[in-house]
């Protein structure tokens, strides 16, 4: 066996073990739904979790000066209020699927990372609604 390849091989095996047992092993479920979270709330107290669901229509409040985003995350059954520091990602909007990383505290879910899920369907915009035309409309409205 050649030493340098052996070291590389051990590195790869270590990385694989980390990926399988560290990345996936802790929790095979990537995110919890608000229902699952509320059912077993004591278990997830003071522990970082990921919550996934839809941004409830009409609940988004964004404070531009404090860079503080508040909304309600829903799975259609249960709802969890979320507060997140920072600007929302470009594709964040009401009704959108999101995954929030963070922990529960002071009555709200405090997100440290906000991820936006998008659908697998790709459609061309209707005539007159290409990105340039939308930008022009916004600029004209100012």
């Amino acid at each position: 066996m050649k030493a340098k390849y052996l070291i590389g091989l051990l590195l790869i095996l270590g990385a694989l073990a980390y990926l399988i047992f560290g990345g996936l092993g802790q929790n095979l479920v990537y995110f919890l739904t608000p229902s699952e979270y509320l059912q077993d709330q004591a278990r997830y107290q003071n522990r970082p979790v990921r919550l996934g669901g839809l941004v409830k229509e009409g609940t988004v409040r964004y404070d531009k000066d404090q860079l503080e985003l508040r909304f309600i995350l829903t799975d259609g059954v249960a709802e969890v209020p979320v507060v997140h520091k920072g600007t929302p990602p470009g594709m964040f909007k009401e009704g959108q699927g999101v995954v929030v990383e963070g922990r529960f505290g002071e009555g709200v879910f405090q997100g440290t990372n906000l991820l936006v899920k998008h659908s697998e369907a790709y459609q061309a915009p209707k005539a007159g609604w290409t990105p340039e035309e939308v930008r022009k409309l916004i600029e004209e409205a100012k």
């Binding site: 091989l9 790869i12 990385a15 694989l16 990926l19 399988i20 990602p89």
Partner: peptide, 25 residues
């Protein structure tokens, strides 16, 4: 620009990273 992060340990990304590492191995 779409999800908001370069990387996250979700199933598709994790299994693909493992796949890549196996063939480096």
């Amino acid at each position: 620009p779409t999800w908001g992060v370069y990387w996250t340990w979700e199933p598709r990304l994790t299994t693909t990273a493992i796949l890549f590492a196996v063939y480096v191995g």
